[in-house]
């Protein structure tokens, strides 16, 4: 679907991205992760045929971004970091304009608009001018314009940027809904969004690709095989003994013992969760909570970016 080789882009003397190389296969949902200024937006703009590369090759469905940009533009839906919306237009008119601009015949434009509005839950604001919409709705309009012409590839740059927690959850669910019908490349520095919506990660730092793979693969490569967090009733000792005996468990750490409840961190792959639960219950320990460690991706991210904070 996407083959990138030696992609480099200079702004004057400054290299925004250097020698990027990756491949994305059809149907994948890939997260593009990096700190602000790492080169995510530049890379996505090249894939979206907005910018031309200084050197390197980018082929999308066999077409080259320099030699056949029009063939690519027909097959992609691009959401830039700022949604490209005309504020004076209504949502319906705007989406109809974009659909026709991207080659949908006028007779089919309305049906495509309704389809995109349904997928992005915008039906109720079809006749509302975009300038009257909240930030969350505008982001959804941005996603709707990217998919209104049914592209094979969606390139979304920070779709959750500036959204409140409730809107982030909505956007996450919207992105999950795109799985299957489109190949999706989504950039973000919101780690939980990437973690929960993407099959695979590309991590970029200072214009260079520093890692790629699934979350588990990256964790293993960096020496952190993942962990499970759990709460049990009673003292820590019996639970620690049971868990230490489970094959695959590397380490058990007591994090808290309060009011008869013990919180434990079990360094083990997330797939071991059923085995861990069974071992505790069979051993007579009452299990209150068990979940995959949530800061896993953050620690991977910080390790990959050499501990530099996003701020």
């Amino acid at each position: 679907m996407i083959h990138v080789e030696g992609l480099t882009k200079y702004y004057g003397a400054h290299a925004a991205i250097r020698d990027l190389a990756f491949t994305i296969t059809k149907g994948e949902v890939v997260g593009f992760l990096g700190l602000n200024g790492a080169g995510k937006t530049t890379t996505l703009k090249v894939l979206g045929c907005v910018l031309l590369p200084t050197s390197g090759r980018v082929r999308i469905e066999g077409f080259d971004v320099v030699e056949n940009p029009h063939d690519i533009r027909r097959r992609i839906g691009f959401l830039p970091d700022t949604p490209p919306i005309y504020e004076e237009m209504t949502v319906g008119d705007y989406l109809s304009f974009v659909a026709q601009l991207r080659g949908v015949p006028r007779s089919q434009a309305r049906a495509r608009v309704e389809e995109a509005e349904e997928r992005t839950a915008l039906g109720e604001v079809d006749r509302v001018p975009i300038r009257a919409l909240s930030h969350g709705f505008r982001q959804r309009v941005g996603v709707a314009q990217a998919l209104v012409h049914r592209p094979a590839l969606l390139v979304l740059d920070e779709p959750s940027s500036g959204l409140d927690p409730a809107q982030i959850v909505e956007m996450r669910s919207l992105l999950r809904g795109l799985r299957g019908e489109h190949t999706v490349l989504v950039s973000s520095h919101i780690l939980s969004e990437i973690s929960q919506t993407c099959d695979r990660l590309l991590v970029i730092q200072a214009g260079k690709l520093v890692a790629q793979g699934t979350e588990e693969e990256l964790a293993q490569r960096l020496g952190g095989g993942g962990f499970v967090s759990l709460d049990v009733v009673g003292p820590a000792a019996p639970a620690v003994a049971l868990l230490s005996a489970v094959p695959g468990v590397l380490q058990v750490t007591v994090q808290r013992e309060e009011e008869g409840v013990t919180t434990l961190r079990v360094d083990a792959p997330a797939e071991l969760r059923p085995v861990i639960a069974r071992a505790l219950v069979m051993g007579g320990v009452e299990l209150l909570r068990l979940e995959r460690g949530t800061e896993q991706l953050e620690s991977i991210f910080l390790k990959l970016t050499h501990g530099r904070e996003a701020a």
Binding site: R73, F78, L101
Partner: peptide, 9 residues
């Protein structure tokens, strides 16, 4: 919005 025109055919 120029990105919309630039990324369209």
């Amino acid at each position: 919005t120029l990105a919309l025109l630039y990324s369209s055919p």
